[in-house]
């Protein structure tokens, strides 16, 4: 369905000007190689700045790579970027082109610009707004909606005018659980009925684990792993994550706790530790009894998530979200 080979894009260094510091050359995508199968929900996971959006912009023909090839359904997108619009529908992070339109007109106009005639565009608009529960908001301009509702309305425009590939850049940002469910059931329906393929950009670990068939983990422009979420998690199966939240500060006078400090990732009152199961049990026993317990506010013991995989693979950033 979609094959990416050796895709590389480097942003040139920018000389500093008054008020803006100089930035060095950045390799936004670095020799990326991906294969996405038909009907797959394929994810790109990584923290902000990992190069996810840059990669997606090259796949959608919005940006020319320096080197490498992108082939979607047999079409060379690097050589013919304009063909991308006839194969895929893209949901970017920005809605400024649609902000001042009503939900209904945004969906209809997008459908017409996707090549539908007026009748089809209106039919599909009504069906999609109904499917996503947006009909009551149809007459409201996008900019007057809440962030999650606006995102859902933009998602609706992606579905008007069928495409075999949907490229969604963080589609559920700001959405409540109802809207999220609407998005994923709309995606599932299209996959079941028409074999639609989805390329999803996300920095949300929970979403990645629940909706994706396969996921490529991106760090600093490189794909550092690519597998099913379960397959990736097997790589760190020997570890569990312990999180300790202290009431005020850690009881460093307890020797077992003091020893732990070096291995913990501290963020405020929260310590995150990745330990072998036996060690984790011992720690939990220590902090839930004796002097340390008085200082403990909360603790969790969890099996590894994709975030742990990301860190275990040597991911440098800290920007993944669990929500």
């Amino acid at each position: 369905m979609c094959a990416v080979r050796g895709l590389t894009k480097t942003y040139p260094a920018v000389r500093g000007r008054r008020g803006t510091p100089a930035t060095p050359e950045v390799r936004a995508t670095d020799d990326v190689r991906l294969d996405i199968g038909r009907g797959e929900i394929f994810g790109l996971l990584g923290p902000n700045g990992a190069g996810k959006s840059t990669l997606v912009r090259q796949l959608t023909g919005l940006m020319r790579p320096d080197t490498g090839s992108v082939e979607i359904l047999g079409h060379d997108i690097v050589r013919h970027p304009e063909r991308a619009a006839r194969i895929l529908a893209y949901l970017g992070q920005e809605s400024s082109a649609l902000d001042e339109l009503t939900v209904s007109l945004a969906a209809e106009t997008t459908g017409r610009l996707r090549g539908l005639d007026v009748r089809r565009a209106r039919q599909e608009r009504d069906a999609v707004l109904d499917e996503l529960g947006l009909t009551p908001l149809a007459g409201r301009p996008l900019r007057k909606l809440s962030g999650g509702q606006r995102r859902l309305a933009c998602f609706a425009t992606v579905l008007v005018g069928e495409r075999p590939l949907l490229v969604l850049d963080e589609p559920t940002t700001g959405m409540d659980p109802v809207a999220r469910r609407a998005v994923w059931s709309a995606v599932d329906r299209r996959r079941a009925e028409r074999g639609t393929t989805v390329l999803l950009v996300t920095h949300n670990v929970i979403e990645a684990e629940t909706v994706l068939d396969r996921v490529a983990v991106l760090d600093q422009g490189r794909v550092i792993a690519c597998d099913t979420p379960a397959g990736l998690k097997e790589q760190v199966a020997g570890e569990v994550r312990v999180e300790l939240v202290w009431r005020e500060r850690a009881p460093l006078d307890v020797p077992e706790v003091a020893v732990l400090r070096e291995r913990a990732v501290e963020s405020g009152r929260r310590w995150t530790l990745r330990l072998a199961p036996d060690e984790a049990r011992a720690i939990v026993a220590t902090v839930t009894g004796g002097a340390a317990f008085a200082a403990l506010d909360d603790f969790t013991l969890a099996t590894p998530s994709l975030e742990d995989v990301y860190l275990a693979l040597g991911g440098a950033g800290q920007g993944l979200v669990r929500a």
């Binding site: 294969d35 797959e40 359904l73 194969i87 690519c226």
Partner: peptide, 18 residues
């Protein structure tokens, strides 16, 4: 990369464009 699914099947002709 990743062995869970065989995803790369050779496609003979380019798909029709919308």
């Amino acid at each position: 990369p990743g062995s869970a699914r065989a995803v790369a099947r050779p496609v003979r002709a380019a798909a029709e464009l919308a």
